[in-house]
Design a protein around this nucleic acid. Structure first.
Lengths: 217, 217
DNA sequence: ATTATGTTTGACAATATCGTCAAACATGTC
DNA sequence: GACATGTTTGACGATATTGTCAAACATAAT
């Protein structure tokens, strides 16, 4: 028979192209033509490998989630203090997002198209040894021990992701309004920003009482 | 002639419907059919009022930006201390976003479709008495006076908007993962969250030195 | 009632995209 | 070389969307 090797290569090539296009334009806006062009084949040939757009999307969803969940195992499972872990996590995600700046937008778009499917896929990806759950358990344990302040996990999650992801979603705006369209300025800002994020997370977890502030009814 | 009244009403009705649909589904994904249905008229009739989808979109862009820039003039121009102002701004935006939860997603989508047009439209909307610039000037002045810490404005902007907008973009996810799909839980969380955001912004602006933290090369 | 003006609609052509098919093509195997 | 198997492509029909037109409709002024 013909080169089975080539076929596998082509599949990978297509998946890679599809990943790029899907992430860049979103599931609905990306067309099979776009993907075929990106992969350097005809649209019909693309359909030969993946009978439909949905099939193709299913095919890449796992890969995309993998880049969304970079490897933070070693950090989480280390015995460094919690804040050191966050430093490592922030570093890892910063690198992952710089390599894939459209990822946050893609994920938000997917969450709003089909949240259930998204959650299912993430759970499947995390598998049995769920790093996120482990991190959560560590946080709760440290809170109980009084080593860090008791903060609702949802607050940590929304603060961390919001701070981390927002600049990427608004990249085009930030570059124009604050960074004078200078090449490399965005990456520099993102790298520099790690300190800010870490400080904010630290502030949330610090054991000292929050400043006096009257609750608002 | 025929009722000019009705025509104006219909235009408003259409603009309102278009606003809803555009914000909900984004500019590209919203179809003229969707909007016509939402407005309760035929698609052809919609084309009678707005010759094309782009015209219609231009028509609503101003309105949308208005809800994106709620009235914070009274707060900014008051002589309250800076942190009090932020409290007011956070309150105002919380209300605006709860009334329009899809707005952040829409804006991010627009920024990525045509950032220049977006910026142009915002500037036009803000006009001569640009509240945002005034707030910025106040911030810089207070920093100079030493009343608040010297923080790059871009850091304040990305932190504030990221913290403010992210939960709305991930609403579907948060409701499922953290809020057990309880009705009203999201709104309650958002309201409660104002305190967290204010604390973080306060932390950024507080005059005391940032905690010891070695810069990362 | 007739007319003029403004409004609504169904039908149409143009375009874009999707998924399928049969035919052409390439490359190993005999 | 002939065949079989895997790959690529052009062409097609189906569907969705857009913008336009002429015809139907409604209402106010005469």
């Amino acid at each position: 028979m013909k080169a089975k090797r080539d076929a596998q290569d082509m599949e990978l090539q297509i998946l890679s192209a599809a990943e790029k296009v899907f992430i860049r334009k979103g599931r609905l806006n990306a067309t099979m033509g776009d993907i075929a062009k990106e992969a350097g084949i005809s649209r019909t040939s693309l359909n030969y490998y993946f009978r439909s757009k949905n099939r193709l999307f299913e095919g890449i969803l796992g890969n995309v989630l993998k880049s969304m969940l970079p490897d933070i195992k070693s950090v989480v499972d280390s015995d460094a203090p919690m804040l050191k872990k966050f430093e490592g996590i922030i570093d890892t995600y910063t690198r992952a997002l710089l390599a894939n700046p459209s990822l946050p937008r893609f994920i938000i778009s997917e969450i709003n198209l089909d949240a259930d499917n998204f959650i299912r896929a993430v759970k499947k990806m995390l598998g049995a040894e769920n790093v996120i759950l482990r991190l959560r358990a560590q946080l709760l344990s440290e809170m109980k021990k009084g080593n860090i302040r008791k903060v609702p996990v949802i607050d940590l999650v929304t603060a961390y992701i919001g701070l981390m992801a927002f600049p990427f979603m608004a990249k085009n705006l930030l570059e124009r309004v604050f960074l004078e369209n200078k090449k490399g300025a965005f990456e520099a800002y993102i790298l520099q920003r790690r300190t800010l994020i870490l400080e904010i997370i630290s502030g949330m977890l610090e054991i000292e009482k929050p400043k006096k502030r009257k609750a608002k009814k």
